[in-house]
Amino acid sequence: MTDLTDPRVARAIALAWREAELLDDKDYETWADLYTPDAWYVVPTDPSTDDFASSLNMVYDDDRMRRMRVARMTEGFSPSAVAAARTARTVSRFSVAEVSDAGVRLRAAQVVVAYKRGSYSVLAGDVTYQMILGATVDTDRIGGKVIRLLNCDDPVSASGFLL
């Protein structure tokens, strides 16, 4: 078991938390810049597949789709984004699948609580991150992220926010 206080791991966890804060703050332009251009951001519907290209996903974003998604969330044309739920999320239960000076593959649990029109809803899932460590902390980037919702193959309701 890898020591979570390993400085490389601590940087990776800090990056996951930085991303979580940006998403709760709906600061999508800054959020998108956390990703490397070749990173995939995926929310699958199939709980067991790793072949995302051949199966249906809720989100399957390369850089181009991610940039379009940011535009959608910010430009004011999307009624659901305009009326987006407020969110507060926690990311924890970290474990390390792989660590090197170049990067860290991290696994975590994420619980997103959303509030809209008098109702709270919860979206919980397992997240894997491929964190790319830069020369300095400021240049650490997300090289890939997969969110497996507990209810990915059942009805998922979300309103104008990202996981």
């Binding site: 809720m58 399957y60 379009m68 959608r72 998922v156 309103s159 990202l162």
Partner: peptide, 17 residues
């Protein structure tokens, strides 16, 4: 399909709203 449909698609959430 993904581009428009689903809870994080670019179409369905706006319909649902």
């Amino acid at each position: 399909h993904e581009h428009f449909q689903g809870p994080f698609g670019f179409g369905s959430p706006d319909d649902a709203e």
